[in-house]
């Protein structure tokens, strides 16, 4: 190990030294790796791209939902006001509704 921060261990240290000497041979596994990698990158599924785009557009969709929600609340508020105004102008209609209940 590069640091001598630990107490020497006569059991472990020789084993570590031997393990360091025996580096795994990855030459065969590495062969044409970049070709396989680029092939995989070019074959990235369309679904993943659509998914990534959907995530990027998430704030936009959230804003649209918020605006629509605000508009709906405003619209229902306006219609309630209109109903109240109509009821005040035509008391018989109010009686009719209350009799129906």
């Amino acid at each position: 190990m590069n640091d001598s921060s630990f107490t020497p261990d006569p059991l472990l240290d020789p084993l570590f030294a031997r393990a360091r000497e025996q580096r795994p041979d990855t030459a065969r596994a590495e062969y044409a790796f970049e070709t396989r990698l680029l092939a995989r990158l070019s074959q990235r599924p369309e679904g993943a791209r659509v998914g990534a785009l959907a995530w990027r557009l998430l704030p936009f969709f959230a804003a649209v939902v918020l605006v629509l929600g605000v508009c709906q609340v405003e619209a229902s508020h306006d219609s309630q006001e209109a109903e109240q105004a109509a009821a005040l102008q035509n008391p018989e209609a109010v009686d009719l509704f209350s009799s129906l209940e």
Binding site: P24, A29, E30, F33, E34, L37, L38, L41, S42
Partner: peptide, 29 residues
């Protein structure tokens, strides 16, 4: 993308060396 392929070619040995200490088999590696 060819430039990224060159980057991969340059650094694959170090990456393979590190990952091979953990991977259980060639497919995982």
């Amino acid at each position: 993308s060819g430039a990224f392929g060159e980057l991969a070619a340059r650094h694959k040995t170090r990456v393979f060396g590190l990952v091979s200490r953990f991977a259980g088999n060639a497919a995982d590696l």
